[in-house]
Design a protein around this nucleic acid. Structure first.
Lengths: 328, 328
DNA sequence: CTGTTAGCGCATTCAA
DNA sequence: TTGAATGCGCTAACAG
């Protein structure tokens, strides 16, 4: 910086003003000289030092529960795009579903003076999160954390379940099994399970049960298939992991995919068209969700202090073969 | 920090020593008092300030060409795990295969004073990369950049191709088609294509051609299937994207997966067992590759200045139905 | 073993 | 409109 100042024949302060948004305070002549000096020297301001001084690091943190879940990646991609567009950089921390790692990462993010935090984990370590919430805006993605009164952006799970049931019912399926990952407190999983149960209650044409993935998945699905019931059967997989596990089990059980049984999945993965006759899916608008999460943060950073908002997005139904077998 | 020092009745310097690795220089008594003060005040050292002073930010950067490629994610996971183990944090930058974004990200990474860089892109913007290479250690993953004389960690593509051809030949396939993404300069793609051509030359039992993915993929694959040849046909997909595209095309063409044609894939994705009779794959040890990339960086950071190394890992063959149809 | 001093690179008063 | 001085939170000499 000193080099630039000397070469431009000005003081460090002027260079600083040029770098920042105070360019209005500079005469055109000096601004030009500074610009040239910067170009010639290839000078880049040190963000660490800027952050240290101003408290603005232009860094956003994102805490992700499982980076190998395609949903997380997709959302992260949306967030990252939005960040770059506004001059922010994103620090992603993957907890691998491990509480201790969540703790470590939270500490690290604070140490690096991030300006805002996007959270997509279970939010154990409430104490740390609450402290962080005092210091910076925070937005929850997909998973609500009750004690955290932050903005929340995710899927309208009630509507999603409703769309799935409408579709299955219309296609002639009558006996349903919702497959979810273990209800470990993840709000979106709970909402999907609860909505499912509630709506099954109200829809007289349908029967339904809920099953969590576990070592007995194979046996339980087999039992479902063997059970004698009045109507055609279908699985409703609550996310990508569940879909992968169920499809594997169905293959092991020797099912013809998908003539013996219907299947609808929440989230749409790129390989769904390739399995059996293709897997019908409810796609989440992950890019929009990610971008929206960043926007929330940005508004808060700009001083918005409205009460916490909840942004619920709607899924899009993509019909493939796995819900068409009864119409052949 | 001053608060901590006062509460412990010592100077900031002692607190600093406690924070750093100089704990040996402190008496047990003061160390204890400092520790207590830190606990009571919930003090966290500011990494920005530490970085500013020491030049050690404990930050590693990673430039990824395509975050939606499962291979990249898997390697990134390995890197991140290794980072955390050694107290480093990882800043991931996704270029989305876009050169302009590569430029921006490179500038940002430098501004944040990262200590080392892991590169998994095409490495256009050589000038920037060369400058960065002067300032910090760098390691290339999967893709070589000729002008960059850095450590390189990736797959032994020659051996991988050889393993694939051995397997296909042994299973009775004779007419092969290698499908790759466009040869845009990505070294691993080129190596796979070149090895394939070279080895096909030498293996008299086999015939083979190379095809790059493009709008005409459908037609070209159809032509391959229709062509009259002496022996059973198989596709060799050079990565996950190619596998996805090819499988989709085969379905459109009405092939029975995989009785009409064999298939072997480089990289192993979680859905491969579910498609048709299952896709035979050569799995890359992505965790090891990621961890190894970080280790290279760490050694360089610790002063190792040996000439650049190349670490070639070996894939693991996972046999599924897509190469078994001839043995039914 | 511990405290004092002097910056790291920059943004912001306050004068000029 | 610009420059000089001060300090962000911390580490590294150097004394003691």
């Amino acid at each position: 910086m000193l080099d630039v100042a000397e070469r431009a024949g000005v003081s460090k302060a002027s260079v600083s003003r040029f770098i920042g948004d105070d360019r209005a305070l500079l005469s055109d002549a000096t601004a030009l000289r500074i610009e040239q000096a910067i170009d010639q020297l290839g000078y880049r301001p040190n963000q660490m030092a800027r952050g240290l001084k101003r408290g603005r690091t232009r860094l956003i943190g994102m805490l992700v529960a499982d980076i190998r879940n395609p949903y997380s990646i997709a959302v992260m991609h949306g967030v990252e795009t939005a960040c770059r567009k506004h001059g922010y950089s994103l620090v992603v921390c993957n907890t691998d579903r491990d509480d201790e790692q969540e703790r470590q990462h939270l500490a690290a993010l604070r140490a690096y003076n991030i300006e805002g935090l996007i959270v997509n984990t279970l939010g154990h370590h409430l104490d740390q999160l609450l402290e962080l919430q005092q210091e910076m805006p925070m937005v929850l993605v997909d998973r609500k954390v009750d004690a955290l009164h932050s903005d929340l952006v995710g899927l309208d799970n009630r509507v999603a379940v409703s769309m799935a049931l409408d579709h299955l019912e219309q296609k002639g399926y009558r006996d349903l099994l919702l497959i979810s990952e273990a209800a470990d407190g993840t709000s979106s999983r709970l909402e999907r399970m609860d909505s499912f149960k509630a709506q099954i209650e109200r829809r007289k044409a349908l029967r339904g049960a809920v099953l969590e993935i576990g070592p007995d998945l194979h046996a339980r699905v087999q039992a479902f298939l063997d059970a004698d019931t009045a109507g055609p059967k279908a699985l409703f997989c609550a996310n990508g992991i569940a879909t992968l596990a169920c499809t594997a089990v169905l293959r092991e059980l020797g099912c013809a995919l998908f003539e013996d049984i219907g299947l609808i999945a929440l989230d749409d993965l790129d390989w769904y068209p390739l399995v059996g006759s293709g897997i019908t899916a409810l796609a989440q608008p992950t890019d929009a969700i990610g971008a929206s999460a960043f926007d929330c943060l940005l508004q808060r950073l700009r001083g918005d202090s409205e009460p916490a908002r909840t942004l619920d997005f709607l899924p899009q139904l993509i019909v493939r073969g796995s819900t068409q077998s009864l119409h052949k």
